[in-house]
Design a protein around this nucleic acid. Structure first.
Length: 231
DNA sequence: AATTCCAGCAACCGCAGCCAA
DNA sequence: GTTGGCTGCGGTTGCTGGAAT
């Protein structure tokens, strides 16, 4: 039997969206809001699958999207979140205002993966890419340190990062997070809430963004700085 | 100048999860 | 408890433009 397709594909257009199609979709969604995606193409006068409309809207047409390359701070945040969450792009994207899961996934696959490999870090495990026979008796590696030193020579104050201590003799790996106490936390605990994220201080630096750890004594000022810098 | 190669990115596909009937 | 529909997610594909030959 099998499932029915999400929509009747016969006669539907595929491939790149035209400006006219974009305009129709934007106009419809701004006028009516997001309702059931299945009905959107019909109501908006588009020969597209509802899924395709949702994707186009969420990834490219939404007015709150940021475009362009990820800033250094965003890149570091993505790396850190990936070390905690793995390929859960939507969860990672939720921590980066104005960025989409698809955008981050693409950026990871095309830029960050290569960069990490070049740095000697396994992009999957975030462990150092060192042949087993070359490992010291015991060592401590920090993605924070490696990433910070390799991504930029500027003095970053970002304090996000995961520290891996492992001992080949007993194959034990100890994972520590500079912000978070344990990788074993349930997601709701070890992920930052949006409020936590908003407390970070976004500083414009020669066109690049940078996250700074907030001064706990002046949280309100830091929060406002972040918002101003970001938007 | 023409051709080939390759990186980057937009878009598609299939599956899983959720929810209502 | 089961079934079917819808939405969202993650992996993958394929097109495009720039670089290399």
């Amino acid at each position: 039997m099998g499932r029915q397709p999400c929509c009747e594909k016969v006669g539907l257009k595929k491939g790149p969206w035209t400006p006219e199609e974009d305009k129709k979709l934007i106009t419809f969604l701004l006028d009516n809001g997001q309702c059931c995606w299945r009905a959107v193409p019909k109501l908006a006068g588009l020969l597209r699958c509802g899924k395709s409309c949702r994707l186009r809207w969420t990834n490219y047409l939404r007015p709150d999207l940021k475009r362009g390359l990820l800033s250094e701070a965003e890149e570091k945040l993505v790396i850190d979140l990936h070390s905690q969450l793995g390929n859960r792009w939507s969860k990672i994207a939720a921590r980066l205002p104005g960025r989409t899961d698809n955008e981050i996934k693409n950026y990871w696959n095309t830029h960050i993966k290569k960069k990490l490999k070049k740095m000697g870090i396994d992009p999957i495990t975030h462990m150092p890419l060192v042949p087993e026979d070359q490992l010291p008796a015991s060592a401590t590696f920090s993605t924070k340190e490696i990433v910070s030193s390799c991504l930029s020579s500027s003095s970053s104050t970002t304090t996000i990062g995961t520290t891996w201590s492992f001992s080949p003799t007993n194959s034990s790996v100890k994972v520590e997070n500079n912000q978070l106490e344990s990788m074993e936390w349930p997601e709701s605990d070890y992920l930052w809430g949006m409020d936590d994220f908003m407390r970070w201080h976004f500083v414009s630096k020669e066109g690049e963004g940078e996250l700074k750890c907030p001064d706990p004594s002046n949280q309100l000022v830091q929060e406002e700085s972040w918002k101003v810098g970001l938007f």
